[in-house]
Computed example of a mutant assay.
Amino acid sequence: MTFKLYYWDGIPGRGEFVRLALEEAGADYVDVARQPGGTGAMLKLMKDAGDATAPFAPPFLIDGERVVSHVANILFYLGPRLELAPEEEGLRYVANGLQLTITDCVAEVHDTHHPIGVSLYYEEQKPEASKRTTNFLSERLPKYLGYFERVLKQNPKGPAQSVGGQLSYVDLSLFQLVEGLRYAFPHAMRANEENAPALIALHDAVAARPRIRRYLSSDRRLSFNESCIFRHYPELERPS
């Protein structure tokens, strides 16, 4: 059965974490909002569902009659079905916890350029964004990178993957996290990457996987831009 992924057209955003899992697995899926009339259909579904399964916001996934929303929840659902989750049940919860930590980091990245409110333009909150970014780059970014580095190095199965002994959706998401951080904060990432060699090695290994490599060079892969979560505003980042 074909999976239906709903996310905004034109930006990789949170939807990209789900796309990477679907692409790595070679799954049959439709990126609905990128189809003619797809965005309207997505909005109508969110507005008219009329029951507890109605998602608050994209991304969400429809599998048959089942609706699954939120990135970590979607990947927790897809992981076993796409063979991108540990077989051991306990490790699946570890993977979910790691994915939720990635979600936390992505939320903090978003708040560097929208620290006051999502309904305001970036230009309306630039002073606050500057302060928030300074704090994120000096304190939070090294903390997140250091945490994921420790997770990889402490994996009993080796640092080639984050949990268990094989590739999981968490590894794909860590790849995307590094990609997004490099786009948004190139100077800070250059300064911090030497302290996270296992994380960078994981990023490079994921990029070299055959299906991911083909996906990254295809028109299905959307480029980062200043409408996305990961945004590059040079004035927010001063070279260290």
Results as ranks from 00 to 15, higher is better:
136 F>L: 08
70 H>W: 01
131 K>W: 11
60 F>G: 07
70 H>R: 01
61 L>N: 06
127 P>C: 05
144 Y>W: 15
74 I>S: 02
70 H>S: 00
106 V>A: 12
114 H>N: 14
47 K>C: 13
97 G>Q: 03
47 K>G: 14
130 S>K: 06
104 D>L: 09
64 G>Q: 09
49 A>F: 11
115 P>T: 01
122 Y>M: 13
47 K>F: 13
108 E>G: 11
117 G>Q: 11
47 K>R: 15
114 H>L: 15
79 G>H: 02
50 G>H: 03
127 P>Q: 01
147 Y>P: 06
106 V>Y: 04
59 P>W: 00
62 I>Q: 15
133 T>H: 10
95 A>E: 05
145 L>E: 12
54 A>C: 09
72 A>W: 00
94 V>R: 00
146 G>A: 08
120 L>R: 14
55 P>Y: 09
119 S>Y: 12
110 H>L: 07
122 Y>S: 03
126 K>H: 14
107 A>C: 13
53 T>A: 15
67 V>Y: 07
88 E>Q: 15
78 L>E: 00
72 A>S: 04
106 V>D: 03
135 N>W: 15
90 G>Y: 10
56 F>Y: 05
93 Y>H: 08
48 D>R: 03
142 P>G: 15
62 I>S: 07
48 D>G: 07
103 T>M: 15
55 P>N: 02
122 Y>V: 12
108 E>Y: 09
54 A>H: 05
132 R>I: 00
111 D>N: 09
